[in-house]
Amino acid sequence: MSCIITRNVIRVVFIVAILFSIVGCSDNDENNTTPSLTSTNVVEVVFSPSGFGDLGYNDIILTGLEESRKRLGFDVMMHVPASVEDGIAIYNKWAQKTAKDERRLFIFASNQYESALRNSSVRPSDANSSVLLYETHEPIDGVYTFRIGMYGAAYLIGAYTALTNKDESDYKAAVLAANPFDRNVDGAAQGFRDGFIEAGGADATISYISDRDGDGYNMPNEAYALCNRLYESGHTFFFPVAGGSNKAVYQFSRNQGVYTAGIDGDMSAYSGLMNCSLVKNIGSATNDFIALWLDKKEIPQHQDFLWDSGYVNVIYCHDWKETDAQGIETFKNNILGKETKYEKSK
């Protein structure tokens, strides 16, 4: 089996080399001749622009795909385009080809492509080719979609944060969200705020790094500046929901000695003042989807994976322990009801 990586973002080479050195992947410019693939099953992936190296979502997908490739036996082609438009152009070129003796799956590993894909009529013409888009709420004709909802896990983190600081009546937290248009980001932001307030926290401000749709995910300088402003206004806990911009929040936590929570994976290595992390098991969700696809099983056109799916959970970091938050079980028992209510409101 083999994997091929094409991209026009030079800085990802080191990450890719570490993750794929044992399997002999090649890194090729998109204008070069594509090396031959060996499997009859090919998965082609377009990541978000400048996606690798975000210490979270994209890197977790990358690792999960490699584990899945070795376990299930298929070829992989990966692209890290410079823009959404470039990513759509890669897809359009893929869709124009016809599968012969192979089965093909094209994955958009970011909902940044949702609007362009939803407005496009380009779909593969043969039954052996399928398309998957991550993290959208609504079905798209001719495309498989799924999302991992974060409201429930964020609700628990908000409650845990307030309970572990219950002796501070004026304890103020801040959510740093990428933009106000991403419903997945909104779920995490609203969940944290609801849990924090209900557990006795004084305030949980939701602030946005960008006011533009599809933006805010790779803006570390703006995120750091926003942390400064919120810190000066009395906020001493930060919950980031902003993709690659989260790195700046972890850096601010280290520099200023303020507490934070991680997201996407276990982020405890990036700050000693991290109480817990919201873990999205996107690698497992991808593995399970590909396994069903390879076996030609029936797959729902759209799937919502919420708190009870097993694809999202909370882990407690360093010496922070669940028992530090007296009464957390009450909030755990409320998660499904609260999440259901939130989902119905959207």
Rank of each mutant, 00 (worst) to 15 (best):
T63H: 08
L65N: 05
T40N: 13
Q112P: 00
R193Y: 02
I18C: 03
I90F: 13
T330I: 10
H235W: 08
D59G: 04
N184F: 12
Y91A: 08
K280H: 07
H137D: 10
Y342H: 15
E222W: 01
E222L: 12
D101V: 08
I328S: 02
C227D: 07
D126A: 06
R69A: 07
F52P: 01
F146H: 11
L65A: 07
V43I: 15
P139D: 03
V42T: 12
I263C: 06
R254H: 03
D126R: 08
N165Y: 11
G73C: 02
A204Y: 11
V175R: 02
A174M: 15
Y208R: 01
R7Y: 14
D266C: 06
E198N: 10
A116T: 01
S110H: 05
A153M: 04
Q256Y: 15
T164G: 09
S125K: 15
Y171N: 08
Y250G: 01
G244W: 03
L132W: 04
A116D: 03
T34H: 08
K166E: 09
S125Q: 13
G283K: 04
D126L: 05
S130D: 15
A291V: 04
Y91K: 11
S309G: 05
A261S: 15
S268V: 05
G244K: 13
V80Q: 09
N221W: 00
Y316W: 15
D170C: 01
L156S: 01
K321D: 12
F47K: 03
I148A: 00
A199T: 13
G283P: 06
S253Y: 12
A189S: 14
F305P: 02
